[in-house]
């Protein structure tokens, strides 16, 4: 059996040759690891790679190619993001060819000045239950056994969120890398009226992060794009997970798993008591 990487390349090449898609969004090798790439020529398909370093969600790039037919490589969480985006009318299912790759978890990035060495599976991947995208046109199975997942640490140990927020630089990397932050003007970046000033007063970081968390509640698919791109490693996924739990307890709603189930804030059932 061929490795997922060769299968991926073969598929991308045939899609581009048949002109089924204009463009394939995938990952390619770079000097520092892996980065997104946009392939429009069949010959270039050889550049595609697939490994546990492919952590940035590619779904956020889809909004840049609304006019084109795009093939996109998705992990389980990214597939969930696509489902949510379709529900929010942000994506045309017909013009997107979804190549689902079975994901066994991604590695935490080893960033500049990190004192820890060695690869470690990301925290959010330990909790993940959806390893294959729920929506797909083609499935590529993984040939390796799942990365060793350490048993999830007890969620009980609370984090000191205020001191974590204090470290924030407000670089907006969390917003920009998120598949769901498709607003053309971000409410926490807007000028007038400014909820959070551009030159942020440290105390405004509280509003910044809480507002973002409220906007992500019930939508976040815990792909970890925000967390892995954060320069000061604020575990944002854990915060959003907490709010998703609230949605699950109250409405039994898990974002991105079922295309038919409408997001609870959008539905009103007659006779429903608050």
């Amino acid at each position: 059996m061929s490795s997922p990487e060769t299968e991926l390349r073969r598929l991308a090449r045939s899609l581009l040759e048949k002109k089924a898609v204009d463009l394939v969004i995938g990952y390619e090798k770079s000097e520092a690891g892996v980065r997104p790439c946009f392939i429009s020529e069949p010959n270039e398909a050889e550049r595609l790679v697939w490994n546990p370093d492919c952590r940035l969600s590619l779904v956020r790039y889809l909004r840049g190619f609304k006019e084109k037919r795009v093939g996109i490589i998705v992990k389980g969480c990214d597939g969930r993001a696509i489902v949510e985006l379709i529900k929010e009318n942000q994506l045309d299912r017909r013009s997107t060819f979804i190549i689902a790759v079975e994901c066994n978890g991604v590695y935490k990035p080893v960033k500049y000045g990190s004192s820890k060495l060695g690869r470690q599976i990301a925290e959010y991947c330990e909790k993940c239950e959806v390893r294959i995208s729920p929506i797909r046109d083609h499935l590529i199975k993984s040939d390796v056994k799942a990365l060793e997942r350490p048993s999830p640490k007890n969620d009980g140990e609370p984090l000191d969120w205020l001191s974590l927020f204090r470290k924030c630089l407000r670089c907006m990397a969390c917003v920009r890398s998120c598949p769901f932050c498709y607003c053309t003007e971000c409410s926490i970046e807007g000028f007038k009226p400014a909820l959070v000033h551009k030159l942020v007063d440290p105390v405004e970081l509280f509003t910044f992060h809480l507002t973002r968390a409220l906007h992500m509640a019930g939508r976040c698919v815990e792909c970890g794009a925000c967390e892995s791109s954060c320069p000061v490693e604020i575990p944002l996924t854990r915060l959003y997970h907490e709010l998703n739990e609230w949605f699950r307890e109250k409405y039994g709603y898990v974002p991105g798993v079922n295309l038919e189930q409408a997001p609870p804030p959008l539905v009103f059932k007659e006779g429903e008591k608050p």
Partner: peptide
């Protein structure tokens, strides 16, 4: 309230 509780 859930969110505030989480962030302390």
């Amino acid at each position: 309230r859930r969110l505030l509780n989480t962030v302390g």
